[in-house]
Simulated scan of single mutants.
Amino acid sequence: MGYASHPEEKSDPVARAESDLSLEVVILLVFGVFMLLFGLLLFRIHTGELPYAPDSTYGLFLVIVSFQIVTMGKTPFGDLRRSWAVIVLGVCTAVIGMAACFIPGLLAEPVRILVGILLSAGGAALLAQLFFSEDKARLWLKIPGILRHLTVACIIVYVVSIVLGLVTLLPGITTDSVTAVLLIVYGVGFFYLAWCIQKANRLYPPEGTQ
């Protein structure tokens, strides 16, 4: 069944306007909302006002990561070509994440360790790529404007990712309140990074989109 067109909709540019947000930016926004909300709720979880299932939280994180891997080939350790191996890797990650969400306690330790490794080792790998790749920070810092903002945003996200990964692997090294603040900073960092990428894509459109 089709949808009938209405004349008033055709004359309304707002109704016809489409978002120019890229899939990468949308996923970053989802990550930002996830981390920000988790950080805010963790204050009340710490006081016992809200129930908390760590497995489900880690599982949901893995599902979001898997979506990024499958759709764009972007892994926590860097970008890869979307081969079948990468897609299978993403699907397997999603299955593990969903299992952790659906059956709390089944994969408690393995999922926690996996998420900790993805955050810490992934953040370290991305930070190294940022500074050692000739087409990233080395180039971006030479150009005033949004590319410098992009460099700062990447540094914030990657460094906080490393710290949160260590907190996940070694839960006793900090308090829940500090972890909550780190999560909020992480979420804001994702929003900042998403804004930078969106603006950079507008100023420097990828080849083939001009």
Rank of each mutant, 00 (worst) to 15 (best):
P144R: 05
V181P: 05
N201C: 03
T175G: 03
L29R: 11
L203R: 03
G189A: 05
Q68L: 12
F191G: 06
V159S: 10
P13A: 00
V188C: 11
V95I: 14
L147F: 09
Y3N: 13
L193E: 02
Q129P: 02
G165A: 06
S177W: 13
S19H: 00
V115Q: 10
L166C: 13
L182T: 07
L119C: 05
F131G: 11
L62Q: 12
Q210K: 14
A100S: 12
E49L: 12
D20Y: 04
A99G: 02
V188G: 07
L169E: 05
Y3Q: 11
M35C: 15
L147N: 03
F34E: 03
L89E: 09
C101P: 00
G105W: 06
P13V: 00
G123W: 08
A94W: 04
G122H: 03
Q68Y: 11
H149E: 14
S19E: 02
Y58K: 06
V157G: 04
S11F: 06
S19L: 01
M35Q: 15
G73R: 09
D12H: 00
T57W: 15
F131D: 06
P7D: 14
L106A: 10
T47V: 08
G90V: 03
L23V: 09
M35Y: 15
V152M: 12
R16Q: 08
G105I: 01
E9H: 11
D79C: 03
K10C: 08
Y186Q: 15
I96Y: 01
P13F: 00
P144M: 03
G2D: 07
L126H: 06
F77N: 09
